[in-house]
Computed example of a mutant assay.
Amino acid sequence: MSFTGFPEAALDFYDDLEIDNSKVFWEAHRDVYQSSVAAPMVALTDELADEFGPAKVFRPYRDVRFSKDKTPYKTHQGAFVAVGPATGYYVQISAPGVRVAAGFYHADADTLAAIRRAIDDDLHGAELEKIVGTLERKGWEVGGDRVKTSPRGWSADHPRIDLLRYRSLTVSRDYGFDEVIHSPALVDRVRKDWRQTRPLVDWLVRRVG
């Protein structure tokens, strides 16, 4: 199946799901989810797999076991191409439209320590600083989970303390309701943007090993 774009019905589906996140609604609109959301997402990521690798298209069900929020379904559909531990490329559709991202989304203690040692290194740390700065200038939003103060063992006056504070580090870009999301041209748009983020992903993979 070739990717032809996400239909308007995909956005409408998530608009309605945010209002009525129930099994009754889901069962009544399961066919819309399959045809307008899931199938196009698989087609999109399949067309990108030749360059970036196969994607995991996430299940639509929330894990509510340890959450106060018991709504059963995710209000977005994401797909992730992993090239390292919790590191890679991401694309998502939801009520606000399509969003792309890249970076690392979680790190255990040893992995995070390795990343911070690389940031501390003058050569490798300066390289990451340059990569992130370049992406910011190209319009990417830098985000991730970060500690409010200095991480334990690091001085507040470290020249790259802002980067050291991150426990996850991502860059993202929203397409919103741009007409491209409804057309086959979305494949090339995502491909171009993921290529822009490749230096960040490659840095993370090299530094963590």
Rank of each mutant, 00 (worst) to 15 (best):
V208R: 12
S168Q: 04
K192W: 10
R195K: 13
D193W: 07
A79N: 07
D121Y: 08
W154K: 03
G5R: 01
A9V: 01
D16L: 14
E18T: 15
H106R: 07
P199W: 15
P159K: 12
L17H: 10
L44Y: 03
M1A: 13
V91T: 06
V205F: 14
A156N: 09
L48K: 05
D63M: 06
R173Y: 12
D16M: 14
G103F: 08
D193T: 09
V57S: 04
F58H: 07
T71F: 07
S2L: 13
V83D: 00
L204N: 10
G133P: 11
A39L: 04
I181K: 03
P199F: 13
A101R: 03
E136D: 10
V64M: 10
T111K: 06
T71C: 08
P85C: 00
E18M: 15
V64S: 12
K23G: 13
E47K: 07
A10E: 02
A10M: 02
I93K: 05
Q196K: 13
D188T: 13
E51L: 13
G144Y: 04
V132H: 10
A38G: 03
D50S: 14
W203Q: 12
D20V: 13
T4G: 05
D15Y: 14
S67L: 07
P54H: 15
A86L: 05
